[in-house]
Amino acid sequence: MKSYAKKHYLLVLLAVITINFFLPRLMPGDPFLYLSVEEGEVAAAFSEEQIAQYKAYYGMDKPLYMQFYDYILKLLQGDLGYSIYYNTSVLEMILLRIPWTIFIVLCALFLSSFFGTLLGAISARLREKPADKFMYLFMVVFSEIPSFLLGIVFLFVLAAKLKWFPLSGGITIFAPHTSMLSYMGDLLHHAALPIITLTPAGLGNFYILARNSMLTVLSKDYINTAKAKGLKKWQILYKHALRNALPPIIARIFLSLGSLFGGAVLIENVFAYPGVGKLMREAVLKRDYVLIQGIFLTVAVTMLLMNWLADVIYKKLDPRVFR
């Protein structure tokens, strides 16, 4: 059972690597071709000879299967290659950007799982009362709104008009920070809007999950036993219900990382936040195959890992579940 799972993940990984390699190369357009110029820019032009030279340098003059072979070989050595546009090591570029993405994703995940579970528990406790109904509706509405649209609203209202938050960026550049505290404050100030935007999508899921599992647990026999024992309602909720509702929620934490990552790609572009998502879009626009591949692989592997972790943890936490 277990070995099958591992083999399975390995196969998926292989498929991802293959797609990852071929797809960007099949994109129309040539990274070294500069025939047009953006407004207010100066035309960059590479001569035919220069293009040929660059192609040879990046190994793009070889047949595709040879390139694939080289790619796998390099990957095994942990080498993600060299960015065509930025002339920099891809691994280096990703390592510089990924903490920013992980930072907002984890913060949003923490907020949404914590508040989602909490509100779900409260809602279950207040079942069928107006507060529960209102909360349910509110959650449904907020979790359905595409997060980048929410981000645009926040950007215009909270950042551009009210000026409560900075319009873009991850930190005030070249600002002298006297203490760690002011530095952290600046960091959070910039990250606030992306995090707030990213949170609602997950919040609804956690809320509904928590509410449903609490409701199921609350209807179980041992809760009645506990009630008969004279335990207070909140005690029951905490001691029995929440504990039993926890496994699916924890598994969900790992699973939702994937969709949060996807959401972050868009959000980062709304707020010009210096994470992987913003880099990804630039890489696509510049046809920087090597960079696209690097980012894509990093994100895919992270998600694969998270799915696997969710699997493992879920099995460990809840022996009833097996597939």
Binding site: M27, V284, F296
Partner: peptide
């Protein structure tokens, strides 16, 4: 499984450009 694991939006970006 591959489709589930692959980050959808990035893939959409690449496919969209492709």
């Amino acid at each position: 499984d591959v489709m589930m694991v692959i980050p959808q939006l990035p893939l959409m970006i690449v496919l969209g450009a492709f």
